[in-house]
Design a protein around this nucleic acid. Structure first.
Lengths: 191, 191, 191, 191
DNA sequence: TATGAATGAGTCTTCATTCAT
DNA sequence: AATGAATGAAGACTCATTCAT
């Protein structure tokens, strides 16, 4: 990704998350990127194309980070803790990305469907860990697909609802990871 | 809500969930409702107004159902199980609503913020139950806000991702409720 | 064709012939028609659609006039004289139309091809007369298709080149008809 | 005309005739010429300039060929036959040129007017021959301007309508010349 | 209550042209 | 001589909204 394209990329994420995809105009993106409107079209086919590129790129990076961190571990439970941290941390650093993503993946249309497909490639990582954990007798019987969806939705909601709202100082990736890990692994119920 | 207004209301939910709020035109809503475009403006101030009405109505009903079901119970854990069921069941019956909601609540803008405020009135129900459970020594120490957000995101994601995608016959509200309840209360880890 | 559509129709012909199809803006057409830009799109799908409608309509009228006038006659040579007059007269009254038509029918593209197809339905009238004349032993052996194309091109050129250029008072439909008829029937050569 | 300029020239004719002047982009011309977009501007002032150059060049060559061929003859009727052949043959070899020309010379605008002026210098050749023929008592009384326009329109139409459409094997310059000559000199009417 | 023709502000997109290299 | 990234003016088109009937 060359210099100009990256400026556009960053401006687009910021602007989409601030105003939403549809209320964002190409004019605005160009302004925020410090280039002329026509330049956007030199680097991207269309406004839709910017969105797709942005979601592609985001999920790709999230997946890469997850794969790298998980690779070194053997224990499925430890992998889960790690993946919670990676996702939390990534969304914490890129909360604009998660806002854009969450605004675009729902619905019956062709576009949200396409974006969900991309997301699934990430969810599969989680599913695999769950499956592994069940084989290792570390994780209880459950439907991996449901659990993967639950993980994604849980973390994203927490981050998107919270990050957007308050800027609570104690609201940091490590604390959230701990909360979510406890919740997800041990459950809420006192034994 | 009179007959015509209800026709519009239903057409709007269906159309928003199918094409998204922005790609949906007033023309389309009118067509699907079987009325003329002008009629929409007799019953609603604007397109935004239809959306707001629709989200208001949805959250109001979800809350009502939850309050009714929970009212009879004392045990916080049972209340949680119930609320999982109510939300699952509601979203199962009204998956178009959750699609619309999930597409609109994220972002820094004034509109998503307004909708989040409405959602919070529902999340508070969950927070209260958690708090109650902690007092009853049934539920472990945790951050209620985070847990409420987690519950909402978890269930919504499962429903929105699944319902839209496959039409798995065994994918029914009761099974999902059980899965989610087990997951949330006992955690994934084998003891 | 209702009142508004007709206003647009007339403004479009005038504007296209003055500035050419591509240099004409929808704004201009709207101004000349005395309506708002959006109104154009209420009555026509697109700028291309206006052009197509206009060419359809023009050729339809030209054909109707020709058929009406020819119907009463039996002699193929008289029919030819009549058709020369009809075409000359029509183009004289609608010189803006012929300018638009002649600017659009050439080329390998899909659009000019479509317009030529429409024109052919008129040229067939001429071909039939030629064929008839040959059967009646009034007209010499020749290729009808070539002659029909020649007739059309000859008359159109004269009208388009002349009408546009000078406003010669003696330049009237009847005189041109006589010239063309003499030229076409008797040829240039002195016997 | 150097090598690069000629590549551009040829690419331009081909592309203009294929897509029309307005739908043709500088990008396309550059691609078809195998050069970069900027290079077009090294050799031509603008897109309009390419068009003008191309029409200038075409008419210049047509005129040159006509003058050369006619020069050797004395008889006006033979000159006419020759000029029909030259024009037919030229347009047959350069049908892309005639398509471009015919698409650009009509209309009230400044540009088509300018191109018509260029065309007139060719039409004058025909007018002169007619005038000469009348003096030689070989050609009947007629309006030279009208006849010249008729000749041009007739031949161009035949070529442009036919050449573009079918690739009839018997459709060759010599046969067309014969048809047109017979038609123009002796007329259609059986004596 | 309901209609639908008309509106015009707002946007995406195209593309000829420029210019530093 | 040639390149191609960058520009921004211009234009087609959309669509929420209005209003006379």
């Amino acid at each position: 990704m060359n210099k100009t394209k990256e400026k556009i990329f960053k401006a687009a994420i910021k602007t989409f998350s601030k105003s939403g995809f549809y209320k964002t105009t190409m004019e605005e993106i160009a302004e925020n990127a410090g280039v002329a409107k026509g330049t956007l079209y030199y680097h991207f086919k269309s406004k839709d194309d910017i969105l797709e590129f942005l979601i592609d790129e985001g999920i790709k990076i999230l997946k890469q980070e997850a794969i790298e961190e998980i690779g070194r571990l053997n224990n499925a439970v430890e992998k889960l803790r790690k993946i919670i941290f990676v996702q939390t941390n990534f969304l914490y650093r890129n909360h604009d990305f998660i806002i854009v993503l969450l605004s675009q993946i729902w619905g019956h249309g062709e576009v949200p469907r396409k974006f969900r497909e991309k997301l699934y490639t990430y969810l599969e990582l989680i599913e695999n860990i769950i499956r592994e954990g069940k084989e290792q007798k570390l994780i209880a019987d459950c439907d991996e697909k449901i659990v993967a969806a639950a993980f994604f939705g849980m973390i994203s909601s927490i981050l998107a609802l919270k990050v957007v709202e308050d800027s609570d100082e104690k609201f940091n990736p490590q604390d959230i990871t701990d909360s979510v890990f406890n919740f997800a692994l041990k459950g809420l119920q006192l034994q």
